[in-house]
Amino acid sequence: MGRFLLKRLFQTIIILIIISILAFSLIHIIPGDPVYAMLGTDITKEYHDQVYHSMGLDLPLVQQYFRWISNFVQGKMGYSYHFKEDVLTLVQRRLPPTLILGITSAIFSVVLGLLFGIITAVRRGKPIDSILTVLANIGIATPIFWLAVLLVFIFSINLKWLPSWGFTLPWVDFAKSMKQLIMPVICMSVGGIASYTRQTRSSMLEVIGQDYIRTARSKGLKESKVIMGHAVKNALIPILTLIGLTLRNSIGGSAIIERVFNISGMGSVMVEALGSRDYIALQSGIVFLALITCICNLLVDIAYAYADPRIRLD
């Protein structure tokens, strides 16, 4: 187990290095003078040169990269010219909403998706199977912002049940926070619920058809025990690998949901940084999001290794 862990940790670091190189290249791929692109052309030549120098753009590329990365590791991510603050403080403020949204909807997707998946597998061919399957498929097929706009129109504007925008940290005002979370979480987890339902269903069907389940049944075990005790346990393992992917998707996809519900999170930071050519926020933001995804993947892999001993020996 220790060796496996070490190997995965090493791999994660390599991945992060590759990402940092990709993010760093951005600033040099986009044509034009980055300082003018970032600050507009109204600035004086002196100010331009000062910023150019402070960003280290006059250094050789390799040196620039190492300068940036060593500063990044020390938490000195630089000053964002669009957001007018240090990137680290910016991330500290903007990350929690995105994480809370992402994690809540990931949990939502997994729980509901598994539930629906098991129901559809066990009640295969019954009406409930058809309804849930069709719903799951429609869930995957709907443009997420279109759904969000419809929900707001129905539940905020016409029924006035839920607030149409905003985000409150749960430890600041729990009731308000929950009310504001409902619609964004539904929108963000629809796709996840759908894919978990499909995956769980096929995974369960596969397991149910296998010999040891038949053996268990023939031994006269209760059907519910067979399903919960044997089938689900074995069907869950392949599902685990999906969780990392779900988190990545919900954190990345939050850009759209944050825009519809006017939530200030990391997604809107990335979109705004791109729009205003704020390279400093952009570089660090990408690496930050990737870092979170990598950590999640690492945790999932460890959990996976625990659940399925074969992996450890691989």
């Binding site: 706009v149 707001v152 129109f153 905020s156 504007i157 006035k160 607030p163 149409s164 925008w165 905003g166 825009r259 519809v260 519900f261 006017n262 200030s264 809107s268 979109v271 705004e272």
Partner: peptide, 18 residues
Amino acid sequence: WYVFDDQTAAVNALKTGD
């Protein structure tokens, strides 16, 4: 003052009385 990236979100907030 509240900042809205998306105009429709602001219009919705106006309609709901926020």
